[in-house]
Every structure is written in structure tokens, then in C-alpha cells.
Amino acid sequence: MTISLYYFDIRGFGEYIRLLLIDQGVTFEDHRFERHSEEWEKLKKTMVFGQVPCLKDGNEEFVQTGAIMRYLARKYDLYGSSSTEAAFIDMVFECVRDLRAKYVRYIYYSDETKENYDTVTLPETLANLSKLLNNSSQFVSGDKISFADYILFEELDVANTTAPGSLDKFENLKQLHANMSARPNLKKYLSSRTAKINAIDRQ
């Protein structure tokens, strides 16, 4: 059954999904298009919320990043091994999403400032996450990778780019970032990745 991902030719929200699929060795069609393109104009009309990312798996079609990631998590066993782990993974995923939402407010809407983001929002969230994660485990939930690892890795990677040095104080987050970057499929993908983080020339 063919899996296809439809998203803009940027990292954005689609990147979490791409990282998960690539790392899990899932073959998929990575459909990318420009924001101002006929392809998107046409596709937009067929999307339930007029939004992408959209994942097509055989005859099924899913939208909403939070729903797509969880669908794939159930399919590829990335949702922990107990209901306690699942709740923890959901919690980390949602926290990282909140961080991204603030980043998006700064990038696209200007009601968060770069200064506040870099000096308050980002370090506070990183400190909370660092405290929450176990120092000795490899991933968000112990030694088993979960869908939250992909979103956390991507956000740490963005933080590394937009605010260099922001991870320095957080040894376990730095380690998680390093662990993820070294996974063979991701390493290969990252070495040739050229897509921009955002749709506008700002990061």
C-alpha cells in the first residue's frame, strides 16, 4: 500500500512526519509543492480543513499533524508500552507543540518577539523538558523510541539553528539530539537536507 505525504517544500510541520517515516525505513512519496503553486491551489480545495500536511495511506486520508503522528505511532509501535508511557509521550509531544506555536507566532505573526522567544520562551521550555526527561535514558520514553522523539529532535534542531548555543546548558537534550542525528537513516537524510525551516525567509 502506498503512503504519500503532501506538504510544502519546507520543514515546517511536515518535517516531524518525514523524520518518523524515514527513520522507520518506511517507503513513502514525499510530495512537496510551493505555497504559490497550482498544485497547492487544487489540493487545498480537497482538504477538510484547507490545510496540509496530509497523509494518504492506501485509500485513507488524514490531516492534522497531531493526528497523523499518532496514526503512524500506532502503526509502527511508537506510542510506548503502557498507558503511563503513552500519557507521558503525549505530554512531551504537546509541550513541544506549544513551543512551536510560539515560534510560529514570532515568525509569521510578530506577536511574539525574537528577543522574548530566545531569552524567555525557549530557555524556559528547554529547562522544563530537560528536567522532565530521564538523564540515563536514550529517548523521551526510556530506551524505546516514540513519536515524541521526532518532534523533540526537530525542535531542538531548529533551536540549534535559530539560537546557537541554546542547548548547551541541557546535557540530556544535547545527548538526545546527538542520538537522533546519529541514527543511520536520519544521518543520511540530514546530510542532504536543503529545505528551509519556514515558508518565509526568516528563522
Binding site: S83, A87, D90, M91, F93, E94, C95, R97, D98
Partner: peptide, 10 residues
């Protein structure tokens, strides 16, 4: 458990 999206799913 914090985060409404995590609490509701739990």
C-alpha cells in the same frame, strides 16, 4: 499529567 491534549487522550 499536564497538557489538555494528553489528559483527554489518557
Amino acid at each position: 499529567i499536564v497538557q489538555s491534549g494528553a489528559i483527554l487522550r489518557h
